[in-house]
Design a protein around this nucleic acid. Structure first.
Lengths: 139, 139
DNA sequence: GTAATCCCTACTAAATTGATAGGATTAATA
DNA sequence: TATTAATCCTATCAATTTAGTAGGGATTAC
C-alpha cells in the first residue's frame, strides 16, 4: 500500500506545479485545497525541502516552491524521498543494496529473481514520469 | 517492503516446485531447508492451500504439493494471495476497486495517474512469470 | 513589534507484522 | 486399536510502522 505520506506529498507537489506563480504557496493553503491535515503536510513538505525538491521561504508571505521546473522533477527522486527505496527487497536495491543473511546464492533465489523484474519495471515508470506529466489534465 | 510472509511463501513454493516428486513435502522439511520459522510457515502454506494453489494431505506422511504444474502457476495469483492487491492504491485496483473519498476527479489525480502506470507494469511482470521461471537456475 | 509563516521535537493511538503457543483433527501403520 | 506424525485452527503477543497531534521556536514582512 502507498502511504498517506506519499499520497499527500504527490498531491501537494502537483498542486504547487499547477499553481506555478512566482509566489510561494503556504502549507495552510495547500492543506485546505487538497484536504490534508495541515500539521502532517507540514512535516511532509519539510522532508521534500530537505531533499532539495522544494525550496521554502520563512516568515510572513513565506511558503514553498519548486526548486526546478516540473519537467525536470523525476518521480524516481520524489518517490525515493517520500516512500523510500523503490526495490521491495534490499537485495535488489540499487541505492540501498544489502545481502539477505539467509540467502546462499542470489542467482538461485526466486524472490530476488522476481523482485528484480518488478524493480526494473517500476523504475522504468518513475524514470519516465516527471511532475509535469502528472500535473497536466491529460498525459 | 515485501512482507516476510510473501518472501517465505515464494521460497516455499519454489522449494516444492524444485522437489517435484509424487510425495507431498512436509512443513518441517521446508522450514528447515529454507530457514523459515516452522509455525509461521504453517500458516502461510495453509493460506496458499485455501487459495487453491497448494493441495495438502493430512496425517502421517502428509504434506503439501502443487495443485498445478509450475508452468501453470502465475505470479499474479501467488502475489495476490500472499501480498494482497497488486495496486498500491484502491482507486487503480482491478479486483478491489474503491474510489477515494477525497478525490473529485480521478482523471485529474496525480496519484491515480502515476499508480495506474505502476500497476500496469507490475502486472505485466507477474502475468508473464510462472513458478517454473523462478524455479529454474537461469531464466 | 506584531502577525504570519516555516521549523523542529516530542508524543500518541491504531494498525500491521512476524511471530509463538497449544491443542484439535486426521491418517498411516504396527 | 493405539501410537505416531502430520495438517488444521484459534488465540495471543511484542515490536514496528503509520498517521497523526501538540506545542512552541525561529524568521521575516510590514
Amino acid at each position: 500500500m502507498l502511504s498517506k505520506k506519499t499520497k499527500y506529498g504527490l498531491k501537494a507537489l502537483t498542486f504547487i506545479a499547477r499553481s506555478e506563480g512566482d509566489l510561494p504557496l503556504q502549507v495552510a493553503e495547500i492543506a485546505k485545497q487538497e484536504q490534508i491535515p495541515q500539521k502532517f503536510l507540514e512535516s511532509i513538505l519539510l522532508t521534500l525541502r530537505k531533499a532539495g525538491i522544494l525550496g521554502s521561504k520563512k516568515g510572513k508571505h513565506g511558503g514553498y516552491y519548486l526548486r526546478e521546473t516540473p519537467e525536470d522533477i523525476l518521480m524516481t527522486d520524489v518517490m525515493r524521498v517520500l516512500e523510500g527505496p523503490i526495490a521491495m527487497v534490499p537485495c535488489v536495491s540499487l541505492n540501498y543494496y544489502e545481502k539477505c543473511d539467509d540467502c546462499v546464492d542470489e542467482d538461485l533465489c526466486s524472490v530476488n529473481k522476481l523482485m528484480l523484474q518488478v524493480r526494473d519495471s517500476t523504475l522504468n515508470v518513475f524514470r519516465n514520469t516527471t511532475l509535469a506529466d502528472l500535473s497536466h489534465p491529460k498525459g
